[in-house]
């Protein structure tokens, strides 16, 4: 299974390295969203502070930035998953993948792994953007890293499963967000909570959200490992 996963992971990353879709299309989208949020929230945000300004009705960036990061990442996930699916739809490549004899669980792990790698690159961009546009200060790196890693795995797992489910459908582009967003919403909410608590310095309260993210990641990855074969056959 892991040999097959590495093979598919390498293939998807090689394709991305040559096509540069995430770099040239998704990354600019992410930056644009951050810039628009920065302008849109300019008057209500207190930058470089963790407490609200009582004179104006402003809110501290520490409460807003996590939501912006994870919401933007959710939109980026849809684009990355859509691309991951379209790779297998080009010129009947999906049939070849099914006929390859690769372990479906390995294919799932490989494709989800490639999505994780791309999301991590986008997360770095988002964090840099939030530091630049919102002067966000990162605290509690262990909590942030744990929450980010687990949420990324959970999102990638959900995206990979629903990507396979929507593959081959003419309405895939519109169906994918409808399918993915409700399922991935708890992951996003938990990640936002953990990040907010980390940024405002309430680290102890953030760990229960990480435990919830562990549950989501385990459930979604397990579901993908078990169900991906059937999803692949039905697509």
């Amino acid at each position: 299974m892991f040999r097959d996963a590495l093979l598919v992971l390498g293939k998807d990353l090689r394709i991305e390295a040559r096509a540069k879709v995430t770099l040239r299309q998704v990354a600019p989208f992410v930056v644009t969203v951050m810039v628009l949020f920065a302008f849109g929230l300019d008057r209500v945000l207190v930058r470089d502070a963790n407490v609200a300004d009582t004179v104006t009705d402003s809110v501290p960036a520490a409460y807003v930035v996590p939501g912006l990061i994870w919401l933007t990442l959710l939109f980026a996930l849809l684009l990355v998953v859509s691309r991951s699916v379209s790779i297998e739809e080009e010129d009947g490549a999906g049939d070849a993948l099914r006929l390859s004899g690769l372990d479906p669980a390995g294919i799932f792990l490989g494709k989800a792994g490639a999505i994780v790698v791309q999301l991590v690159a986008l997360e770095l961009l988002l964090v840099l953007g939030s530091m630049l546009f919102f002067q966000a200060r990162l605290h509690a790196p262990l909590l942030l890293l744990s929450a980010t890693a687990l949420a990324t795995v959970g999102m990638a797992a959900v995206g990979t499963c629903y990507g396979a489910l929507s593959s081959g459908l003419r309405s895939r582009e519109t169906l994918l967000p409808v399918l993915v967003m409700p399922v991935v919403a708890p992951v996003v909410l938990a990640a936002v909570q953990a990040w907010q608590l980390a940024l405002v310095g309430e680290v102890g309260d953030g760990w229960p959200w990480v435990r919830l993210l562990i549950v989501f990641a385990v459930v979604y990855v397990s579901f993908g490992v078990l169900a991906y074969g059937a999803l692949l056959e039905e697509s």
Partner: peptide, 20 residues
Amino acid sequence: RSVRRRIGLLGHATSLYEDL
């Protein structure tokens, strides 16, 4: 699964990855 590894299908599509 085990049988498919010993089957080769060449259909109307070439099943190649354009970007590889």
